[in-house]
């Protein structure tokens, strides 16, 4: 049975009947059993359990995947794809551990410099101010 009780390593749990949409940040660790869509940002760990479904871009310290994941993963320390993992997206990490049986489709960049040389993620730019200020008549 999946461990759905909070502990010291994983104080945050998103339960099997929960769905989260949006941007999520936390410090230590999170275990995902439900559905998550959006972005995850953490210096800690993310564990995606077997029954979990995630469609998100993740920037974390360490990521373990056992479930279904779509999106880009980036980890400073390591990414682990367990036997039951189904992953589609681009992966960037210092270390990668893939168990036999895992499904992986996407671009992989792994190595000590992989995370350092990461292309900067550009935040959504505000619309450029137009040459002609609005609400003013054109002369």
């Amino acid at each position: 049975m999946a461990d759905t009780t909070p502990n010291q390593d994983f104080p945050t749990i998103l339960g099997p009947d929960a769905t989260f949409k949006g941007e999520l940040s936390y410090e230590k660790g999170m275990r995902l059993h439900g559905k998550l869509e959006g972005k995850v940002n953490t210096p800690g760990r993310l564990h995606i359990a077997k029954e979990a479904k995630m469609q998100a871009d993740v920037d974390a310290g360490a990521i373990t995947v056992e479930g279904d994941v779509h999106g880009n993963l980036s980890a400073n320390d390591r990414i682990e794809l367990k036997q039951s993992a189904r992953y589609e997206g681009d992966l960037r990490s210092s270390r990668l551990v893939v168990d036999e049986g895992a499904i992986l489709v996407g671009h992989v960049t792994v190595g000590p410099d992989a995370v350092k040389n990461r292309p900067p993620t550009t935040p959504a730019k505000p619309a450029l101010p137009s040459a002609v200020p609005q609400n003013q008549p054109v002369k």
Binding site: L104, V105, G106
Partner: peptide, 11 residues
């Protein structure tokens, strides 16, 4: 852990 990989993977 420790291997260096760069490319498109279809597993």
């Amino acid at each position: 852990a420790g291997a260096v990989l760069d490319g498109k993977y279809d597993i």
